[in-house]
C-alpha cells in the first residue's frame, strides 16, 4: 500500500482518533484524511489529530510532495487531488455532494493515480459523499473498507457505499485498525 485515504463526516472524528491511536508505530504509510468541515472556520483539527498520532500531522499544501510518516488533512473550501508525481494539488471548484472537500473527489483522484496501491476507508456520515469514489478504488484493485453500519453513529454514508458496490470489506473499528496494522506493517 502506498497511501491510506480516510473519509468521514458526522460521527467520524472520534473514530479517526481511535484509528490513529491504534496504529502500530511501525506503520508509516502516508495517510490522507478528508473530513467535511465548516466553511470559514479555522478549527484545531490538526492539533487534535496530532495529539493521538505518531504521524506528523499537517494540512495539505498545494504541490507539496507526499511523504512517509505524514498525515495530511484537507483545508476547508478546497478539494484535494493527487498528481502522478505524488504532489498534492488543491482545487477550489464546485462543491460535490454539497461538500468541499468532497471525499469522492479525493478518492477518485488518488485511485486514478495509485490504482491498486491505495486503501480507501469510509466512515460514519450522513450524506452520500464517498460512495462513488470508494467504488472506483475497489474497481481499480485498491483496498476498500467501510465502517460497519451497526457501529457507525450515522450509517447513511457507509450504507450508500455498500448499496452501489457490495464487495467492500465491512469492518468494525477494531478490525479496521487490525487490518491496517497487518497489511501496512513496516511499509
Amino acid at each position: 500500500m502506498e497511501m491510506i485515504i480516510i473519509g468521514g463526516s458526522a460521527g467520524s472524528f472520534s473514530i479517526i482518533l481511535s484509528i490513529l491511536k491504534g496504529l502500530d508505530k511501525k506503520v508509516q504509510t502516508p495517510i490522507v484524511v478528508i473530513l467535511h468541515r465548516l466553511k470559514n472556520v479555522d478549527s484545531s483539527l490538526e492539533k487534535h489529530l496530532q495529539l493521538h498520532s505518531h504521524y506528523k500531522v499537517k494540512e495539505a499544501e498545494d504541490k507539496e510532495i507526499v511523504k512517509k510518516g505524514h498525515l495530511y488533512t484537507v483545508p476547508a473550501n478546497y478539494h484535494l487531488l493527487l498528481e502522478e508525481n505524488r504532489h498534492l494539488s488543491l482545487d477550489s471548484s464546485e462543491l460535490i455532494n454539497y461538500s468541499r472537500p468532497s471525499i469522492d473527489v479525493t478518492f477518485e483522484s488518488f485511485s486514478t493515480v495509485l490504482k491498486e496501491k491505495c486503501s480507501g476507508i469510509l466512515l460514519s456520515g450522513s450524506n452520500h459523499d464517498g460512495a462513488r469514489g470508494l467504488k472506483l478504488i475497489a474497481e481499480n484493485g485498491g483496498k476498500s473498507i467501510v465502517q460497519d453500519c451497526n457501529e457507525a453513529e450515522f450509517d447513511v454514508m457507509p450504507k450508500a457505499a455498500i448499496r452501489i458496490y457490495e464487495h467492500h470489506k465491512v469492518l468494525t473499528l477494531n478490525n479496521i485498525i487490525k487490518n491496517l496494522n497487518e497489511e501496512s506493517y513496516g511499509y
Binding site: L82, E83, S89, D91, T112, V113
Partner: peptide, 9 residues
Amino acid sequence: YSRASMLRR
C-alpha cells in the same frame, strides 16, 4: 496546468 485537475475537468 495541473495534470490531476485537467484530467478531472
